[in-house]
Computed example of a mutant assay.
Amino acid sequence: MDTAAFVVSSEDQVRDLLFSWARAVRAKDVGAITSHYASDVVAFDAVSQLRICGIDGYRQHWDACIDLCDGTKTFEIRDLAIETGGDVAFGHYLGRCGGTDAHGEERSCWMRVSVGCRRTEGRWRIAHEHVSAPFDLETGQVLNDLQP
């Protein structure tokens, strides 16, 4: 019997981190969500603030985001691409974010997401996150109805 150890690539570990994080978002579990981030995370989210620095600030931001969703939380990762080198990784994907409103209707849109991850003490965490929404340059209106 071959007892060779199974080696998980850094790319697979980062992919697992991001999909675990997405499950925590759908579960609306802010503690689980923020456990995926480095304590010194810097985030450029598409909602409400120009920049968020540190895990405490991002925890407050996530609390507010989760409170906006009365029903089921929607979060989907699509077209994920990851590059790793040593203890750093970069990834990008399209993320469908939203949820059901008080009337049970789903309200979601596709966003663009870039992440920078760092491995510390053998564990990958998100150190930088940038979420943006496409918009019409002439009108300034966010383009919520675009599809991948």
Rank of each mutant, 00 (worst) to 15 (best):
R59G: 05
W21D: 06
H103Q: 13
F135Q: 13
E11F: 02
K73F: 07
D16T: 05
F19N: 13
A38I: 06
V8E: 14
F6V: 15
C69F: 13
A81P: 05
C69M: 14
L143I: 14
A46G: 10
F44C: 11
C65G: 07
F75A: 13
I52N: 12
E121S: 01
A64M: 06
R112W: 00
I52K: 11
D12F: 04
V115P: 00
R15S: 15
D79I: 00
R26Y: 05
S35T: 12
I77H: 05
A22K: 04
L137G: 14
M111Y: 08
G57S: 13
T74R: 14
L68K: 05
A102Q: 10
Q141W: 05
S20Y: 00
G122S: 09
I33P: 01
V7L: 09
C65P: 03
G98Q: 11
C97W: 06
W62Q: 13
Y93C: 13
S108Q: 01
R107W: 02
R26Q: 14
R23Q: 14
N144G: 09
C117N: 03
A4K: 15
A4L: 15
V30N: 05
Q60E: 15
G71A: 05
R96I: 05
D45R: 06
W110Y: 09
L80D: 04
P134F: 01
L50F: 07
V88E: 09
D2G: 13
G99R: 06
L68N: 08
R23W: 10
N144S: 08
G95K: 00
H92K: 07
Q60D: 14
A89K: 01
I77M: 03
A127W: 03
V7C: 04
T3I: 14
V30E: 10
L146A: 00
K73T: 02
R26I: 09
D145T: 13
H130G: 03
I77W: 02
D79W: 00
E76W: 01
A27K: 06
L143P: 04
A89R: 00
D136S: 04
E121G: 00
A32P: 00
R78M: 02
D63H: 11
D12V: 11
H103I: 07
L50D: 11
R96P: 08
V41Y: 00
P134C: 02
Q60A: 15
D29K: 02
V30K: 02
F135D: 12
P134L: 03
K28R: 15
E11H: 06
M1W: 14
C53D: 15
R15W: 12
I126H: 10
L17C: 06
G54E: 07
P148Q: 05
A81K: 14
A38P: 04
V7Y: 02
A81D: 14
E138L: 11
T100F: 03
R118A: 09
V8Q: 12
G31L: 11
D12M: 11
V30Y: 02
G31K: 09
A133K: 01
D29E: 13
A81F: 09
A22G: 13
